Simulated assay, not measured.
Amino acid sequence: MDTDSGIAPAQGAGDPAERPPVTVRRAEVRDAAALVRLRALMFASMGEEPGPEDAPWRAEAQRWFAERLGRPAEFAAFVVDDPELGVVSTAVGICYDRAPGPLNPAPVTGHLSNVSTDPRRQRRGYAKACLEALLDWFGRETDAWVVNLHATSHGDALYRSLGFDSPRHPELHIRLPRGERA
């Protein structure tokens, strides 16, 4: 049992050569709740407590996903469905404007996130299939020349196998204090 998510991990996923082919589809607005569920599982697997089903962030995230799924030129999510569990895997991508530079002459950069598979269906190639579909979308349907992501130790080898590498200059961030705004 995965103590973080309360879900039993996959058992007997089998030899990759014996697995049926993975069917990936582009997520639709109706999948927003499933994307939130997989996002919560992702946070739990990273050791971040996602909170209860009615945590305020979940409703906001569902609204956010639903809105962006209606913007196919700048946002895409690819999913794998399971006949018993519904949507069990996803990878999400978004394009954002950024000033061009010598290594990225396009004003568009891609960001990949929310790579998550339900623990009961892990180790079957679902995340890789979603990632490949998403990278194809970035390459064929967007102007992005560069796609970035934040990798955990769980996904690092998969991302590198698909061509991702460490940036020359590591990303840093700061959490700004939030309170009453003037």
Rank of each mutant, 00 (worst) to 15 (best):
G70V: 08
E48G: 08
T117A: 01
P72E: 07
A77C: 05
W137G: 04
P100K: 04
V115T: 02
F65M: 10
G86R: 12
A73Q: 10
E84L: 13
D82Q: 05
G93V: 09
A144N: 04
R121I: 02
A34C: 09
L112R: 02
R140M: 06
R39I: 07
I94D: 10
E60N: 14
H111W: 15
F138E: 05
C95I: 03
L85T: 06
A127G: 00
G47F: 02
D118L: 01
E132Y: 10
V115G: 01
A144P: 09
E141A: 13
E60L: 14
L35P: 09
A66N: 05
C95V: 08
A76R: 11
A99Q: 15
N114E: 10
A91E: 00
C95H: 04
F65N: 08
F75E: 08
N114Q: 14
A40D: 13
P105T: 13
R39S: 11
R63C: 13
T109A: 10
W145N: 15
L134H: 03
G125Y: 00
S45W: 01
P56E: 15
E60I: 12
P72C: 05
F78S: 00
T109H: 09
P72H: 06
A44W: 02
S116R: 04
W57L: 06
M46C: 05
G47S: 05
E67K: 15
L41Y: 11
R98M: 13
K128M: 00
A44N: 04
